[in-house]
């Protein structure tokens, strides 16, 4: 099995703090990896390094043999990586469509003159993007499709998460990074969101997903493999059942009991 995403020795230092310490990480096409670890273990830092928000200190990272190590968020996005955030990062005063469109904005003509003088092309482009956004939103929730031109701030928590996921998916990424999608949601909402996600996986079998999550039920349900981080290092990689039996993982999460 060849890896879609391959990272080796990925390291990120903030001054004296080593947030990521020589991380080797691989995801195959169509695979879902559950990434777990206590608070501060480097999960979000890993996402931020992968998506180019932080520049890594050393190591290597490639997506389908394209080097993405230390590249700009633009080129990493173009290579096919998209993400959601732990804290809701939507434009709440803007419409659902505007928020979803942010996912494909970098591929749009953004020149001022073309915006002012090529309105016909813009209109056609908008119509096509609206149709695509509507299709995506409806796949997650038909009512969300109907609310495409409502302010995102009017939505419930779960629909906001869905908008974030649609925003990440609209550019047809090859690797989707989900940063704690259950944060701030009720267990029931979390279950529904995971239903959506599993249904979507059926339709896009090649999409690879890395999911950061504290809810072990979620991890058990959706992930093919699990990776556990602690102090920026990988302390476990394997199946879910093996993970919860693992002594080092238990110690990292619950303490050593002494």
């Amino acid at each position: 099995m060849t890896a879609l995403l391959a990272c080796s020795g990925l390291t990120k230092r903030f001054g004296g703090l080593v947030a990521l310490d020589g991380l080797d990480f691989a995801v195959a096409q169509g695979e879902t990896i559950g990434l777990v670890g206590p608070n501060g273990s480097g999960k979000t830092t890993f996402f931020n390094v992968l998506t180019g928000l932080y520049s890594p200190t050393s190591g290597a990272a490639s997506l389908d043999a394209v080097d993405i190590f230390g590249k700009s968020p633009q080129s990493i996005g173009r290579a096919g990586v998209a993400r959601t955030f732990q804290r809701c990062r939507l434009m709440l005063d803007q419409t659902v469509f505007d928020n979803i469109a942010l996912g494909v904005l970098r591929a749009k003509p953004l020149g001022l003159l073309s915006t002012l003088f090529r309105r016909g092309r813009l209109r056609a482009d908008l119509d096509a993007t609206i149709a695509r956004a509507h299709q995506l939103a409806c796949r997650f929730n038909p009512q969300l499709g109907a609310a495409l031109f409502r302010p995102a701030g009017d939505l419930t928590m779960i629909d906001r998460r869905r908008v974030e996921i649609c925003r990440a998916l609209i550019a047809n990424p090859r690797l989707l990074l989900l940063d704690e999608p259950s944060a701030g949601m009720t267990p029931d909402e979390t279950r529904r969101l995971m239903d959506d996600l599993l249904a979507f996986r059926e339709e896009a079998p090649h999409l690879a997903v890395v999911l950061v999550e504290h809810e072990m039920d979620v991890i058990r349900r959706v992930s093919d493999r699990c990776v556990v981080l602690n102090f920026g290092r990988k302390i476990f990689e394997g199946l879910f059942d093996a993970m919860i039996e693992d002594r080092e993982v238990q110690t990292a999460y619950l303490g050593s009991g002494q």
Partner: peptide
């Protein structure tokens, strides 16, 4: 941050 993550 969100804008940067989406390549703006």
């Amino acid at each position: 941050i969100a804008a940067s993550a989406f390549g703006l």
